[in-house]
Amino acid sequence: MMEKETVAGGKPTRPKKKFDRHRADAIQAYSFLAPAFLVILVFFIAAFVFALYMSFNKVNMYNNQYTFRGLQNYAEIFKDNIALTALKNTSLFSLVVVPCQTVLALIIAYALSSKGIRFKKLFRLIYFLPTLTSSAALTLIFMFIFNVNGPVNGFLTGAGWLTKPINFLQEPQYALKVIMVMNIWSTVPNFMTVYLASLVDLPDSLYEAAEMDGANAWQKLRSITIPYLRPITTYVLLMGIIGTFQMFDQAYIFSNGSGGPDNSTLTVALMVYQYAFGQMNTMGYACALALFLAVVIYVVARLAEKLNGGNGLANN
């Protein structure tokens, strides 16, 4: 807890050398940040400013025509019912996926780091497999196993839980759910690994003390592991929120780019893509939509981080 204070306030550990230490800190910090910052400036900020500029214009990328139209693109978003549907789908997606992936990742990481578990390396290797695969390949695999004649339907009908195979890919009420399952399945190992890497630093003495008090696995998880991992959970939540709100390729491959059936798989990012690269000159609207989405993500991320009990992203 002490180090937290140091970090937040930059409280000097040795008051005598206060000035020197601050200066040296700053010099080291700037030189450590400089290379990363250069890349950010060229490939993120310049690109972002360009996108911002386009969002105030009607843009025709094909013949490089820009017509200034002020805030009109942004005004359109609020009149656009389809954008609303897309935002609804995206939020629902995030609401289901983020808690599931975080909790699952934490539980699996906890299990893997528990003492006296054998075959750890094998388990770890298996769990890690989905992360190694591109999402294009994963989507194809999932579409394959969920198709009407696929193994999932085969299993469910074989076990007598279904009388008739479900058309998971074509029914509006199932399509988004399949993508949810796929997304959870493929992101859990990622976050599990992040948790694991932090768990190896957790001092054994903490668990040992708890064991002395007769704590069981569940109590140890609740009172020691989870609080210890809070900074990492902040990271996992934030990355999860960003990832789910920007979900694109799975919906794209799944619906062949249409967002169907019946708009059930239309996400905001897919809509951005449709407007940016469809057969229309609507790059400006696409940029406005994307920046609007960025604001939504920012707000949601701050809310989630409050719920996680942090006192500001900076200190957490």
Binding site: G257, S258, G260, P261, D262, G278, Q279, M280
Partner: peptide, 15 residues
Amino acid sequence: TLTTINTSYQNFVGK
């Protein structure tokens, strides 16, 4: 505007 209209058509005609 054909491909835009077709995207929308595919999205809804099924039901």
